[in-house]
C-alpha cells in the first residue's frame, strides 16, 4: 500500500516565546496509507485537535514536517490553499457553519472555491448529498429548516463535495442520539469504502472507533503513544485507562473473562464478535445447542 501522508517529527507550541507558551504536539512521526480509515483518540487537551489542524495547513507546525503525496505542504507557503482542498476538514459541530440560502448552495460553496463549475459541480453536490442521505427535495430548502442531524450531514456533504483525498472528521457524532450516530457512522464507512478515500476520524466514542477504524492513533500529553491496528490498541486496556481513555465495555468484559481463564481471544471489539465467541464456547460445553 502506498502512503498518502507522512508526519516527520511534527511539533507545535502555542504562544511560543510568550509567558503563555504551551506545547500541544510533541515530536509526532507516523505514516498513513492511502485508503485507510484511521481513528484518533485521546482525552481533551491531549493534542489531537492541534494535530489534525496541522494536517491541512490551518496551523503551521513549529517543528517538523507534514508530507502529503510526497511533498511537504509548507514547501511553497503560497500554495497552502490547495492543500485545504486535498485534505478536507469537518470540524466539531459543523452545523453552526451553515450560512447559505439553500442547502444546495451551501454544499456547493467549497467546491466552487475549488474551481468546480457546471455539470461537474452539480454532480459533486448531488453525489455528496447522496452519500450523506440528504433527500434531493431538501436541497432547495434553507439549511436552517433542517433538523439537527440533517444540518450536520449537510455540513459534512459540503466538505465531501470538494472531493478531498483525505477526509478528516473531528467528533462527527458528538451530541447526536444513538440513532443519529449510527446513521452518520455507517454513511462515513460507505463513503470510505466506495470512494476508497483516506478518512481520519477523531472521536471520544471508543465503541465507534472499535467498529470502523483499521488503525488507531492514541495521543496523550502532546505525544503519540500508540499507532497500531484497532485490535492491538484495544487489547492494551490498562495503558489506555492511564491516558484517561476507556476500551469499549464489551472488550472489557471479554478481557476479564479471559483473565478468569476462559479460552477467549484478545481484542474482541463488538457485541457480535463476543456473541459468536461465547456461543461457540457454550456449544462446546453442551450448554446451548
Amino acid at each position: 500500500m502506498s502512503e498518502i501522508l507522512e508526519l516527520k517529527n511534527l511539533g507545535f507550541v502555542y504562544g511560543q516565546g510568550t509567558p503563555f507558551e504551551k506545547r500541544a504536539v510533541d515530536n509526532v512521526s507516523l505514516k498513513i496509507n492511502k485508503g485507510e480509515l484511521v481513528g484518533i483518540i485521546g482525552h481533551t487537551g491531549s493534542g489531537k485537535s492541534t494535530l489534525v489542524q496541522m494536517l491541512n495547513g490551518l496551523i503551521k507546525p513549529t517543528e517538523g514536517e507534514v508530507i502529503l503525496d510526497g511533498k511537504s505542504i509548507w514547501a511553497e507557503p503560497k500554495k497552502i490553499r490547495s492543500v485545504r482542498f486535498k485534505v478536507g476538514m469537518v470540524f466539531q459541530y459543523p452545523e453552526y457553519q451553515l450560512f447559505e440560502e439553500t442547502v444546495y448552495k451551501d454544499i456547493a460553496f467549497g467546491a466552487i472555491n475549488k474551481g468546480l463549475s457546471g455539470d461537474e459541480l452539480d454532480r459533486a453536490v448531488r453525489s455528496a448529498a447522496e452519500f450523506t442521505s440528504l433527500k434531493p427535495e431538501l436541497l432547495d430548502k434553507s439549511p436552517f429548516d433542517l433538523s439537527g442531524g440533517e444540518k450536520r450531514r449537510a455540513a459534512i456533504a459540503g466538505v465531501i463535495a470538494m472531493q478531498p483525498e483525505i477526509l478528516i472528521l473531528d467528533e462527527p457524532t458528538a451530541g447526536l442520539d444513538p440513532m443519529g450516530r449510527e446513521i452518520l457512522l455507517s454513511q462515513i464507512v460507505r463513503y470510505h469504502k466506495e470512494m476508497g478515500n483516506t478518512v481520519l476520524l477523531v472521536s471520544h466514542s471508543m465503541e465507534d472507533i472499535a467498529r470502523v477504524a483499521d488503525r488507531v492513533i492514541v495521543m496523550n500529553n502532546s505525544k503519540l503513544m500508540m499507532f497500531d491496528t484497532t485490535k492491538e490498541v484495544f487489547a492494551r486496556g490498562d495503558e489506555l485507562e492511564n491516558y484517561g481513555l476507556k476500551v469499549p465495555q464489551i472488550t472489557r468484559i471479554m478481557q476479564s473473562l479471559k483473565q478468569r481463564g476462559y479460552d477467549i481471544p484478545d481484542g474482541i471489539l463488538t457485541v457480535d464478535e463476543a456473541l459468536e465467541t461465547l456461543s461457540a464456547l457454550l456449544k462446546k460445553e453442551g450448554k446451548i445447542w
Binding site: 449510527e182 469499549p248 465495555q249 464489551i250 468484559i253 457485541v271 456473541l275 461465547l278 446451548i288 445447542w289
Partner: peptide, 21 residues
Amino acid sequence: HRLDVPQAAELAFRLKGRGAK
C-alpha cells in the same frame, strides 16, 4: 425504539436468545 442499551445487557440478552440460562 432505536435506543441504545449497555453492551453488557445486549450481549446477555442475545446469549439468552440462543438458549443460554
